[in-house]
Amino acid sequence: MQNSLIDLKVIATKIRIDIIKMLNKAGSGHPGGSLSCVEILVALFWEKIKRTPENALSPDRDRFILSKGHGVPALYAVLAHRGVIPYEELFTLRKINSRLQGHPSRLDLPYVEASTGSLGQGLSIAQGIALAGKIDGKKYRVYCLLGDGEMQEGQVWEAIMSAPKFKLDNLCAIVDYNKGQIDGYVKDVMNIEPLADKLRAFNWNVIEIDGHDFEQILSALDEAELVKGKPTFIIAHTVKGKGVSFMEDNHEWHGKAPNDEETKLALKELEEELNELLSQKAEVK
């Protein structure tokens, strides 16, 4: 690990603060699924992909495909904190002429790797990049983040069927299993369980973790790198709206931006957490 656990937690909280600010400024967007995937993105971009402005488009870079495109505020915030896009640009989200489209657009911002937002397509794209890596003997790894509701899409299962055929051990899929989708709980809308059994039956290496626990995320990502001959699927159990008490596990916050009052409340909670983390960090030193 390059960063201490407390540092990663500090970064995650700062990203959450920016997500809330961005969505408030934009006046629309998806807080629930953006907040639930923060630790996964921070673990990837700070410890594995290690994205920098210099490697952001290099042919040998590790790739990250955000198949659940509505979670893109989290990705934009991560790219800004990694220095790939200017921090101020975050607040142009969803505004006219912005590169930060409501869902990722590679045409506008190449750092998102692929245009997504129509669910179900990212894993196929990730598989294609992984296949090219195999053909060329490249060392890069390809990560793909899916939503749990997205697992209902047929194309996802086509890709789940094909990636083991090609022995894509350079491919790691992660599902942000926050249990919610627009119309309600995933288990009620269209149950995807038993998910781990299904994925194992399709010949994936499957790891089930708490998707907010950095140690578990990083150890799963380490394991994925060591497994040879098959792709890895990480089932990351998360909480929708994580970090903001009134948004947690509440479908209403799937696709609604906080107003000024709600933003104030959310930021108060997150800033208290940030201060707590910073004082813990000071004590450790």
Partner: peptide, 8 residues
């Protein structure tokens, strides 16, 4: 989709 990834 896989073709798109190969192209990228």
């Amino acid at each position: 989709g896989t073709a798109a990834g190969l192209a990228l």
